[in-house]
Each structure stands twice: as structure tokens, then as C-alpha cells.
Computed example of a mutant assay.
Amino acid sequence: MQKNLCKTIYSEWVLRNSLYWMSAIAHWKIDESDEHWLVSFEGWNDEVEFEFERLLNDYKLREKLQAHTGQVRTSIIDNVLRSIDSRLAE
């Protein structure tokens, strides 16, 4: 079974993270064209399809959350590092 996924909808990060977890369920192969990711699965069935779609949705949501929270996370990290640095300087 081959799935064609539009690159404008699914980033490489989303796809590769999803496929990493799919390795425990099914063998897969990835190729690409200019506009699509071409993913072939060995042993395709409803369970494999459901899990792949679930992972794609999960990682797409994670990607959106990372984009919206990146500045806050960077600020927290900077504050923690400054705090550690000031404690070490004492």
C-alpha cells in the first residue's frame, strides 16, 4: 500500500516522527516527489492505517504547539540558565 501525502500539509518532521513509531507496527519505505511524500507500507491493514493517521495527527498538533510556544519555552530556558549562572558566580 502506498500513501501520497502532500508536503504542504505534512512537514518532514511530522512524517519522520510518525514513521519512527510505525516501525514497530509495519515495515515502510519513504520516497518523495516535488509535492508529495510517498510512503509505502508492507502488510497494510485497518490497524496500520488507523495508527499511521493517529500519529500523523498527533505530530501535526505537536508541531503547531511548538510553533506557538517556542518563544515562551526559549524565555523559560534563558531564565533558568541565567539563574544557574548567577548561583555559580556566587
Rank of each mutant, 00 (worst) to 15 (best):
M1E: 10
Q2H: 08
C6A: 04
K7R: 11
Y10W: 15
V14H: 04
V14A: 12
L15N: 11
L15H: 13
S18N: 01
L19G: 02
Y20N: 10
Y20I: 05
I25H: 11
I25D: 06
I25W: 03
A26N: 06
H27V: 06
W28F: 15
I30M: 13
D31L: 14
E32M: 04
E32N: 02
S33A: 11
E35P: 02
E35T: 01
W37Y: 11
L38N: 11
V39G: 04
V39I: 14
S40D: 11
S40G: 07
S40W: 08
S40A: 15
S40Y: 09
S40E: 09
F41E: 11
E42T: 12
G43F: 14
E47H: 07
E49A: 01
E49F: 11
F50N: 06
F50P: 00
F52N: 05
L55H: 13
L56F: 05
L56M: 12
N57M: 13
N57D: 09
Y59V: 05
K60F: 15
L61W: 14
K64G: 03
Q66I: 06
A67P: 00
G70H: 08
G70S: 15
Q71V: 08
V72A: 12
V72M: 12
R73L: 08
T74W: 01
S75K: 02
I77Q: 09
I77V: 12
N79Q: 09
N79E: 11
N79K: 07
V80E: 06
V80D: 03
L81G: 03
I84R: 01
I84S: 01
D85A: 05
D85Y: 03
S86L: 03
E90P: 02
E90Y: 08
